[in-house]
Each structure stands twice: as structure tokens, then as C-alpha cells.
Design a protein around this nucleic acid. Structure first.
Lengths: 352, 352
DNA sequence: CTGAAAGCGCTTACAG
DNA sequence: CTGAAAGCGCTTACAG
């Protein structure tokens, strides 16, 4: 480690940054004209503009955005708030929001809510402080307080749920985007049934989270529709992590009458399951079939059947909706539903 | 999809947000006193503070941050700019920066540079526009223009390189953090040599990027130090993606005199390689040993030997350094070097 | 086509 | 302990 101090830097703080006034003086025009020249607003004679541009270059002037924001009440910043940082799915969402908004001149403020109501409310506070012009919130909470905070924010909000949206279709003053996870897990379970399985273990995720409760219902319904009896010992509520998936799978595989297939409510659990199966030398899919949900990179690598949640579309649609309120003064609010799409891979397909 | 409009929302825009003046009037005090009460600055009698707090609650007042920023010249925003979005390593960096800065009252503005000079320069522009107070830039470019832009930004910058830093130790007016990838790949190659391999294929990544050139040199040096002859047909320059790793590996495996081990300059390439080996039914590590670099989740899952780049430490140190300039007026600049740590797994360990 | 002036919403010495 | 006033750096009608 190398340490040094730099006297030059200290001194250079003395020379204050030039303001629009300095530019105006040097160019021999008024600050208003400098502003117009910079923003191509109003009329500016091209020779005047030249002079201004020269002065700007000379002073190495860059406008201070705070001045503009105060006057225009526009920050050109939007916030994308996601529950956590350990899930690829959010990164692809971030990417597509970024892709849409950047060319429109917006920057993205990123925020992690940890999935807590308190932090979710905090994002709405930042909105009201006018740190940002709009908010895309991937939320876990369904809480009256959150609802109120959104309503009273009086600014564009897009609410994204990684589940079936409980607040959709109720005429809310905000947009919602959601994904039909109930159907996703229903399809997932049904796929295993179609492959001839009737003993299907289920890695349910974390109890109490809407996101996982809905998925669980999909599993139950698929069994029910196929006339397969629900078995309590096949359902593992634990956590949505790789480790939890690993542990829960080991428990399932130690059962006297063990399942022939495992349906996981997300890919991380499925990956943990896959690891456990490798460790125990159990062949996939011939001995145990395996299906996940989220379609993350690791799943592609190991050939795990999974479900594309269309998080890229979610991000893109969210950005579009937000933009429509930001710039096009739309006061129409939409509820967008997406359906997960199965990505068939070797982990679940019966070998002939 | 459900569409609706909400007349209430339209109207509510009429009632402008309350300003500090409105609060002052209602509380019967001056705006300055409201400000002091809010920020616990100066002296405010507790009964006065009470009155102010009441008025704030009544009006549902939240201060507009632009006013404060303009006056204080402080945004409490920092930017973290990373090259791309498809690499987990940056997410863990984001996370640790977030973890450090959030409790200090800073928010993180995220930016993707795409690894281009143009976008890297853009981040410095935002710094000079005073959209942010400081910048952590994970850069690819080593360019005089970039260097100048940092120097003239006159604001705290921490430069992170995912390679051996070319600008470290030169008394620059900014901090640098870098990782000794040369040594990393040297160790990686040497590890394979120690395992008895002398025919070692190399997935080199993208030609022309400093990040990969340095790694390549590490490979060459390890061979050289062990007295193993360098073979041009064992070195695959391609891209740093999974797909590229897959394709290049297939080429290597089609060679007449094919390698017994593959060293990849990053994990994505190694994953592609692993896939190819699976497809071709080649056993790992007994037929081909495999080592990657980055230690991403997928590598842990499939048991790929890799290198921890300490990106969490990088993020944490970067945040600390930035903070020291932001709040503690440090004018000492540091260069921090990290060394990748090997994570031994089954893919490279000789079975007995 | 250009300039003078007001004002966006805060904070901060300063006087009392 | 509190208020009046200046000012941060812009933009925006408005007058000419």
C-alpha cells in the first residue's frame, strides 16, 4: 500500500468553479443568453452563441445541476429499488431499465430495500424530497402504510411484484407490473406430473412472503387437479437460498418413501438441490428430476429446467410506463401481467 | 392488461407542495428557525421546536433537497460506475459500497460505462456538474484524456482496476485500488503444473484489454518459470463470455495433441469450457482439469477451482477512501493492491 | 434577438 | 434563542 499527499489538489480548491455569471461576463452577454445558448432555448444569434461557447471552453465551464433543478423542479434522476443484491434477476431488470432511460437523459439511482417495509417507505421519502423524479419499486410488502405513501407521493411510481399483484386492477394512481407465479409453479408441477412423476417434493421458500405463498398454492393446485394426494412431508418451508435448498433436499432424500422429483420455488434452492444430488451421487433426471424457477445463468450451465420470469421485459415496461408519466404527462395507469415461460432442459426430461 | 385513469391524481397537482415558508408561517416563526429545528443546528428553544414539528406534521412537509444542495453544495450522492452488468463480481462490489455508504447518509447512483472511454468520461462530467459528491470508477481505459478529466474534476475519485494498476504509485490526486491478476493467473497456471500438467490450454479473453493482457503474461511467465514450452495453438484469444469459452474449448479439444488442462482467464469462459466438456463427455478433472478466475456462484455450484478477487473488499475500501475525502477532508491518496486467493475445488485436483 | 429581474427552496452568518 | 436578509446557480417570462 502506497500513501502520498498532493499539495496541488489542496490549492486547486481555492479557484472556485466558474458559474454562469463568469461565462456571461467573459462573453459579454447576459446570463440568460448563456442559458439559452446552452440549452438551445429561445433565440440566440449564431455569432452570439459562438462567443458564449468560446467563453465556456475557456473557463472550462460545466453548469451546476443544482441550480437548474431548483428552478425547473426536475432532476432527471429516477430510482430503481430492488429487494436484494444477490439475485441475478434484478440485475437484468436494472440493465433493461438503464437501457431504456439512459438515452432519454435519465440516470438511475439504485437502492436496496432488503425487502423491508421501512426501506420501501424510505424510497418514497426520497421521492417526496425530490431527489428523484420517479420511482420503480420492486416491493415485498403489501401494507396499507406503503399504499398510502405511494398515493401521497404525488409523483410517478411503478410497482413491481415478483408475484401475482394484490393491488392490481383496483384503479390505483400508480402502475403495477407483476408475474403470475402461481401459474408458473402450477406449470412446473404439472410438467413433472406429465413426465410421469407423482411423488414430487417441493422446496417452498420462506414462509410468510406473499411471493412464496402464491407459488405454494400453485403446487398444491397442480397436485389437486391431477388427483395426487398432498403429502406434508414432501413440502419443505425453509429459506430461498442455495444453502436452504441443499439442506431441505437432503432431508427429502432421506425419507423412507422419497420423492422421484423435486420442484423448487426458485433457482437458488434448485441449485442447492442439484449440489446435494451430486454429492449423494444421485443421477438427474433418471433418479430424481429437478425443476427450478428464475432461469439464472447457473441453471443454463448445469442444464436445469427453469422458468424465465421476463425480468428484462419487466424492467423495460416499467421504464416505459415511468417515462410516459414523466415526459408525456400520461395520467393513465396500467397493470401489466406477465406469465413465466418454461425453459426445458435435461434436469426434468425423461430420457428414452 | 388493465387500464384506468385517475382524476384525483390530476387535481392533486394543484395543491403545490409546501415549502419551508409555509411551515414557518403556520408555526409563527422564521424560515431560518424552521431550518435550524429540522437540522438541529444553532439554538432552538424546545417549545419552539415543538411548534415547528407540529406545523411540519400538519402540512406533511418534506424539505426539497434541491434547495439545500444549491446552498450547501453537497448532494449526499456518490456514483459507482462499473463496466458491465453481466458480471456478478460488480454486484458484490455494489453491495459492499452500499453497505458502507448507506449508514453514512449517502445514496448510490449506479452507472454502466460499457467499458468505453466515452462513458467513463461521462461519469466525470456528472461529477463536475455536481450531480454527485464523489465517484468510484471501475475503469477499463488507460488514457491520457481520462487521467486529465480525473485530475481536473477537483472532486474525490477512487479508481478501481480489475487488473494491475498502471497508474498506481505515481502520486496521483486520486486513490487507486487494483488486483494483481498477473500473479493470479501465474498461480493458476502454476497450480495446474503442480498437479502434473504440462499441456495447458489457455482461454485468454479479449485481446487489447489491459485486464486480459496482464493475465496472459502471467500464464506465459508461469510456463516459462517451469521450463514448459509455450505453444501458440494452446492459446485462445476470443472473448470473455461463456459462449466464447465454450467455442474456444471445443477447438482446443479437437487438437491432435490436445491439452490435459485448461486455464481460463475468467469464470465465464471456464463455465463455457465446463459445458463443452460435459457435452463431449470428457471427465473433469481426470481427463481435463479446469481452473477459472472470479469465483462466481456457478463455479461454486459445479465445483470449479477459481480465484476470489476480493471484490467485496474492493468495494469496501473504495467506499472508505471516498468517505475519507468526502467527510474527513483527507488529502492523502492511497494505492491499494489486492491479491486474488485461490479457491480449490474438484475441477483441478488430482484424484488419488 | 438580448438583457434585467424575479424566483426556485433552502442555509447561514449576523445582529439583536 | 430568533429573525431579516443575502445568496447558492440556474431558468424563464417579459419588455424592448
Amino acid at each position: 500500500m502506497h500513501t502520498k499527499s498532493n499539495p496541488q489538489k489542496e490549492n486547486s480548491n481555492n479557484s472556485k468553479k466558474p458559474s454562469i455569471i463568469d461565462v456571461a461576463k467573459l462573453a459579454g452577454v447576459s446570463p440568460g443568453t448563456v442559458s439559452n445558448a446552452l440549452n438551445s432555448s429561445g433565440y440566440v444569434k449564431s455569432s452570439t452563441k459562438e462567443k458564449v461557447l468560446h467563453a465556456i471552453k475557456e473557463l472550462n465551464y460545466i453548469p451546476n445541476r443544482a441550480g437548474r433543478i431548483l428552478k425547473t423542479n426536475k432532476t432527471n434522476l429516477i430510482m430503481l429499488a430492488v429487494p436484494d443484491t444477490s439475485n441475478e434477476i434484478y440485475f437484468r431488470m436494472i440493465e433493461s431499465v438503464q437501457e431504456y432511460m439512459k438515452p432519454k437523459g435519465y440516470s438511475i439511482l439504485l437502492y436496496y430495500t432488503n425487502g423491508t417495509l421501512q426501506e420501501e417507505l424510505r424510497t418514497l421519502f426520497l421521492l417526496r424530497e425530490r431527489v428523484i423524479d420517479g420511482l420503480i419499486l420492486v416491493h415485498f410488502s403489501y401494507n396499507e402504510e406503503l399504499f398510502q405513501a405511494i398515493e401521497s407521493s404525488n409523483s410517478p411510481v411503478v410497482l413491481i411484484s415478483m408475484c401475482n399483484h394484490l393491488w392490481a386492477g383496483k384503479g390505483n394512481p400508480f402502475d403495477t407490473i407483476s408475474v403470475d407465479v402461481h401459474r408458473g409453479i402450477y406449470e412446473s408441477t404439472k410438467h413433472l406430473i406429465n413426465m410421469g412423476h407423482s411423488k414430487i417434493g417441493y422446496l417452498a421458500g420462506k414462509k410468510g412472503l406473499t411471493v412464496y405463498e402464491q407459488r405454494y398454492n400453485g403446487y398444491c393446485q397442480a397436485l389437486n387437479d391431477a388427483g395426487i394426494k398432498y403429502r406434508n412431508d414432501y413440502v419443505m418451508w425453509n429459506d430461498y437460498t442455495i444453502l436452504a435448498g441443499n439442506n431441505s433436499s437432503r432431508s427429502l432424500l432421506l425419507l423412507q418413501d422419497k420423492p422421484t422429483a423435486i420442484c423448487a420455488s426458485n433457482d437458488h434452492q434448485a441449485l442447492g438441490s442439484w449440489q446435494a444430488l451430486q454429492d449423494m451421487n444421485i443421477a438427474v433426471p433418471s433418479e430424481i428430476a429437478l425443476v427450478g424457477m428464475d432461469n439464472i445463468i447457473s441453471s443454463k450451465i448445469i442444464g436445469l429446467t427453469s422458468f424465465d420470469m421476463h425480468e428484462d421485459i419487466m424492467g423495460n415496461e416499467a421504464a416505459k410506463l415511468l417515462y410516459s408519466h414523466l415526459e408525456e404527462n400520461s395520467n393513465t395507469f396500467k397493470d401489466i401481467y406477465l406469465v413465466p415461460s418454461i425453459r426445458l432442459r435435461n434436469s426434468s426430461i425423461k430420457l428414452k
